[in-house]
Nucleic acid binder design. Structure first.
Lengths: 239, 239
DNA sequence: ATCTTCAATATATCAGCAATATATAACCAC
DNA sequence: GTGGTTATATATTGCTGATATATTGAAGAT
């Protein structure tokens, strides 16, 4: 039904560096590893929306038993990445224009607020971390690889979530980040010219981090909102 | 280690009406039913923070096999209601003053925004539903039972979440609602005099729903923020 | 007092069976 | 022959009980 050999080839060329800095703990259990692996494959559309995920196939492919596979699939269900239909099958969830609107609307609002909190709550040692991120962002000139763009973007967002100092908000925003990342991948698959534009978007983040550094909450919030929404409008053009 | 007989007695006297209007689908699987049952017991502090939850005990008590119990516990872990320590034990999570601050801070901000959306997006048939809720709220005079207060409160919030017309936001807010509900129960357990004051808080909602009905987004947002924060300050007094 | 060993106890995983939804084929009425 | 209905086969997840493995805390040796 779908070629695993081809998938493995793709995985190797992509090398998955986008996700290598997973904050998730030790990945100690098989179930956890299986979850992260499947989730990343879904986000990057290696497993496109609508794909049928058979427990038996995944067991063979991932070389684990049924329990880890089942627990991974269930967790993906709660995340909204798969839909489990009892005794019918488990499918990668579809995404439509409404999801695009809803996810980015929520994420823009919540994340911009979190950025305001970050500007208000930044401590000295975090300021140094921010400066380092700013330097890295400024050094990125010329065309970048997709995974580098997204890895850097993710690091900046995670930094903001952390500095906002609200662990529940962190989880909420990280989840919305993953949701919007998949939408972005789906859009890029259909329209590869999207990628270069994302580079420009990265430079917004310099301004945002600088605003956070000088404690300018209003400006930081404004830029964060614009940043998320610019992703949304880029995606909307091609969907 | 902990008395199940006593728990069953308490359950009967409470009769659990707070949660009888669960929006969760048919509760078709054993795992789903087990999850909801455990979650409600944790929220209402029938299973207090720190309680050790043994798979084997829960299997006997709930009269289900290992899989439903495990799946329920895992889902509770993702919700933040239990902490699973591999091969050590599963515990109902503790809550401290930081959780109180973080949960209510996030919920107040996100929910007040959702209330703004509700005011902007209310349709005619929903306006009628709102009017009916307002009537019910106005009819509640005199001392009320705890579960009636919370059931009504929950209906109002769910109504707002629904009218905001963003399914991701709905899930996020429903989760925060459950988190703050447990904090409230923990506080009430230590300080039962909290209950009567909650009644007054209910009447804020009449003003909020009326603001939503006339499309006054600013006022609706303001009241929603004050409503959630008033719960927070009542709880903070006793913790 | 400190380190080591070991038994107890808990979850993590596995393999097999049960239940059910779906598709397919057989059948019947017309 | 054709349309519709029912029986049956198949594929898939749901669930169970047994086994594997890791963690912990205490007993015992040093």
């Amino acid at each position: 039904m779908f070629g695993y050999a081809e998938m493995d080839r793709k995985r190797n060329t992509l090398n998955m560096s986008v996700f290598e800095a997973e904050y998730e703990a030790a990945e100690s259990t098989l179930a956890e590893r299986t979850y992260i692996r499947l989730r990343d494959d879904i986000i990057t559309t290696l497993l496109p929306p609508g794909t049928l995920l058979r427990e038996a196939e995944l067991m063979k492919r991932m070389e684990v038993g049924r329990t880890p596979v089942r627990e991974a699939l269930q967790r993906l269900q709660y995340d909204g990445f798969v839909v489990v239909s009892a005794r019918r099958g488990t499918f990668v969830s579809k995404i439509d224009i409404n999801d695009l609107t809803a996810v980015y609307e929520a994420r823009a609002r919540i994340e911009s607020w979190a950025t305001r909190l970050a500007a208000e709550r930044l401590r000295e040692f975090e300021r140094q971390e921010a400066r380092q991120l700013i330097d890295e962002l400024k050094q990125t000139t010329g065309p970048m690889a997709l995974e580098d763009i997204l890895a850097l973007d993710r690091r900046v967002h995670r930094f903001i979530y952390k500095v906002a100092k609200n662990s529940f908000l962190f989880d909420t925003l990280d989840h919305y980040h993953n949701l919007s990342l998949r939408i972005l991948y789906v859009a890029m698959k259909r329209f590869p010219t999207l990628v270069p534009r994302l580079e420009d978007v990265l430079h917004d983040q310099v301004l945002m981090l600088e605003a956070v550094c000088r404690g300018d909450a209003d400006e930081a919030e404004r830029i964060a909102m614009a940043h998320v929404m610019s992703f949304e409008s880029e995606v909307r053009k091609v969907i």
